[in-house]
Every structure is written in structure tokens, then in C-alpha cells.
């Protein structure tokens, strides 16, 4: 007998509905900020082609954001206006390394590989989800994300081998991005993740998804001789630094009270152009 599927959020149990909404919101928030940072690199990337790629990836992320917000609107009664314009900063559940403007090109490459890569692992975990509204659109996202990862891997290899300066910058940026990305994954034994597994919302256990991310990035960085705080034990890669999940907040997927920079959200929301938001209610 095949596992039950859910055509609407109304068919989900209360705990599962909350877990699915929280996950979709966290993915949407991260994509919104990734889209912003990619878009910022439309200018100032090391090559014209890299500018075009960054701009294209930004458009992809904002397209995905629209799809996720549409799902949150139709299935969970949210409104994009409230999700973007009216939430307090501490409610944003994005990966924390996206909270501030990026400083250097290596930061861009690091979030492209680690943060966008983590999202892609989770999105691939949502393929054939028992929650049909998500299963219907996630395949297109994963397909587009392949180009993002190819860009990330191409630049990672380039910086890792170009010279000692680019290698050092990449190493620093990678460590800076990896830790908050793992914090965002959260503790695999958390009730929310167990709920997602139990109802078949994800197609693998949360721990398997997290390990898939670590094994891929750990092996890839090792192959490029980039030293991350990861070590290989048997076939699996594990972090050598501790993450204290005792204060992990499932609502914003953070262990500390960190939040996105207000100025960054001001630009992202288009606040200075609020009077031109025609047809929207203030």
C-alpha cells in the first residue's frame, strides 16, 4: 500500500501543518536573502559573465520565492505582504551568514556553495513529498539550482587553485558560511524534523539530508585542498566544532538572537519606494 499523500494543508495534522509551514518559510526567507546578495553582484563581480550569472541566479531565487509565497498564501493563509513587509527582523528564518552585506567575492562563492547547496539538498529531500502542493513545484526548483551549484563549484575550484591569496580568502569565507548553515539545518532529532519524516513530507530522514550535505561539501573541499572544520570518519564527514543546539529556536532556526541587518531589509523591501507600491494596502 502506498503512503498517504496530502492534497492540501487542511489535510495535515496540526503538528505537521506547523512543521511544513515553518520549513517553507525558512526556505523562502533564505532564498529571499540569497536573491538579494546574488543581485548585489550584478555589478562588481570579477568578470562580466560572472555578473550575468549572479543576476540570473538572483532572478531564479526570487522566482522560487514567489512560488513558495504562493504556496504559503493558498495553503496556510499567509500573505506575501505580511511575510516581507510586516515581520519583525528577529522572525526571519534565513541562514545567518546572509544577515549582513557580503564583503568580498569569496563570500559570494561560499554562500553559493554552502548555503545555496544546503537549500538544494533540502529541496531534493522534498521531491515526491507527501504534501502534494510542494511536490508539484519543487522539481523545477531543483533543476534550476543545478546551474547555481555548477557556478559555485566552478568558482570554488578556481579560487582554490589560482593563488595563495584567493585560496586563503576562500578558506576563511567557507568557514564563515559553513557554521551558520549547519545551525540552520538544526538538530536532526528535533520534534519538527521527526514530524516531517513521519508524514513523508521529506523523502529521507533529516539526519540523512544533513549528512548528504556534509559528505558532498566535505569531500569537495578536501578534493580542492581547502581546509574546513570538517573531518572524515569512516565514509562520513562531520564538523569538528561544536554547535550548541540547547537554545535553538525552531521558528527562526537560530541558536542566538541574531537577525538580518535592518538596512539590508530596507533595501530588499523597497521601503523608500513605498508610495509607488500601487494597488497594495499600507
Amino acid at each position: 500500500m502506498s503512503a498517504p499523500t496530502f492534497s492540501s494543508a487542511k489535510d495535515l495534522s496540526d503538528d505537521c501543518r506547523d512543521a511544513v509551514r515553518a520549513l517553507l518559510l525558512a526556505i523562502a526567507d533564505t532564498k529571499m536573502l540569497l536573491g538579494f546578495h546574488y543581485g548585489e553582484r550584478t555589478f562588481g563581480a570579477p568578470a562580466l559573465e560572472a555578473c550575468i550569472a549572479a543576476c540570473s541566479m538572483s532572478q531564479d531565487e526570487f522566482g522560487h520565492l514567489r512560488l513558495l509565497h504562493a504556496c504559503l498564501t493558498t495553503q496556510f493563509g499567509d500573505s506575501p505582504d505580511a511575510l516581507i513587509e510586516k515581520r519583525a527582523l528577529h522572525e526571519f528564518a534565513n541562514v545567518a551568514c546572509l544577515d549582513r552585506p557580503l564583503v568580498k567575492w569569496a563570500d559570494f562563492v561560499a554562500i553559493n556553495l554552502f548555503t545555496d547547496g544546503a537549500l538544494t539538498v533540502i529541496l531534493s529531500g522534498l521531491q515526491k513529498s507527501a504534501f502534494e502542493p510542494v511536490a508539484n513545484f519543487v522539481g523545477k526548483m531543483v533543476e534550476e539550482e543545478k546551474h547555481h551549484l555548477r557556478n559555485a563549484q566552478g568558482w570554488f575550484r578556481t579560487l582554490a587553485t589560482y593563488n595563495s591569496q584567493t585560496k586563503t580568502a576562500l578558506e576563511e569565507a567557507s568557514r564563515w558560511a559553513l557554521s551558520p548553515t549547519l545551525e540552520w539545518f538544526g538538530p536532526s532529532n528535533h520534534a519538527m524534523m521527526k514530524t516531517l519524516e513521519r508524514y513523508g513530507i521529506v523523502n529521507a530522514s533529516w539526519e540523512e539530508l544533513r549528512q548528504r550535505f556534509l559528505d558532498w561539501t566535505g569531500a569537495f573541499a578536501h578534493e580542492q585542498k581547502i581546509s574546513l572544520e570538517l573531518e572524515q570518519k569512516n565514509i562520513h564527514w562531520t564538523p569538528t566544532f561544536p554547535i550548541d543546539f540547547s537554545k535553538w529556536n525552531a521558528a527562526n532556526r537560530r541558536c542566538t538572537p541574531a537577525q538580518p541587518d535592518e538596512k539590508l531589509l530596507y533595501h530588499l523591501r523597497g521601503s523608500k519606494n513605498a508610495i509607488f507600491k500601487l494597488g497594495e494596502h499600507n
Partner: peptide, 10 residues
């Protein structure tokens, strides 16, 4: 690798 990405995105 980057040539493929740039061709696709452009």
C-alpha cells in the same frame, strides 16, 4: 565548468 554556467545564464 564556468563556461557552461556562463553560456546557460547568458
Amino acid at each position: 565548468e564556468l563556461a557552461k554556467v556562463y553560456a546557460w545564464t547568458a
